[in-house]
Design a protein around this nucleic acid. Structure first.
Lengths: 121, 121
DNA sequence: GAAACTGGTTTCCTTTAGGAAACTAATTAG
DNA sequence: CTAATTAGTTTCCTAAAGGAAACCAGTTTC
């Protein structure tokens, strides 16, 4: 018996794989999806809300990730002329279109937890 | 005007944020989601199919990522007694429950591309 | 016998991600 | 005057991720 097949036929579903790659370039890393999840749940929040709310994140990271999300027009930043100054972050309209992705990820996390629980019992 | 609010009220939506974190621990990195996307589209495939099909991945990476996905029971590995030996990879039943996540990511990639196109025109 | 196929592993290296802590400026409350 | 608030930035460091190339064993084809 010979294992040789001439190589897989690769149909044009490839578009979808490119789209996956595109998305993951924007959202990769430890924090971005968590930040977006926060903004989806809580709406318009301040820098310090995120810093205190997202477990374990450092100011440097939060600042950097928010800048990147802003550049990609997923997050909007608003400076308020209060004293001391406050800055508010929220999802843009485009950013809100990520809700399907975030809820799918969140839902699967629950599914996976149930799966692990079922196995060990 | 004083910006001080006593600190955000943080309701119990936090479960969802934990679930997001759980999921991303399993799927983080440059390749895992792409691999799963491939397996969703093509079903049962061989090591070399993935190596040649996923643009830019190195054998070391593919091998390592597949091992991790197997450990987490997302991917199943089958050795076939052909000559030369062939190995087939496919999603487990549990792995297939990721299809919602993957299609959401893929769909959003398309949405995002349209968004960028609309802006520049 | 040489080359090519299978599915990897090993080594060595570079790049990136990420974290801790200190520091800034402007302002206010005590 | 001191301490604390806001929203960050800067520096220094380590750990992890990732890539290129060589290598391996077993088998088959030329």
């Amino acid at each position: 018996m010979n294992a040789k097949k001439p190589a897989m036929e690769v149909p044009e579903c490839k578009e979808q794989l490119i789209a996956i790659k595109d998305t993951m370039i924007l959202l990769s890393g430890k924090w971005k999806i968590q930040i977006i999840g926060w903004l989806l749940l809580y709406g318009k929040v301040r820098f310090m809300d995120l810093l205190r709310g997202i477990d374990g994140i450092a100011a440097k990271m939060l600042s950097k990730e928010l800048q990147e999300l802003e550049q990609n027009q997923i997050v909007a930043r608003t400076m308020m002329p209060t004293k001391p100054i406050t800055v508010e972050y929220e999802l843009t309209e485009h950013g809100k279109t990520l809700s399907g992705v975030i809820t799918a990820i969140s839902t699967w996390g629950v599914t996976h937890r149930k799966f692990l629980f079922k196995k060990e019992s």
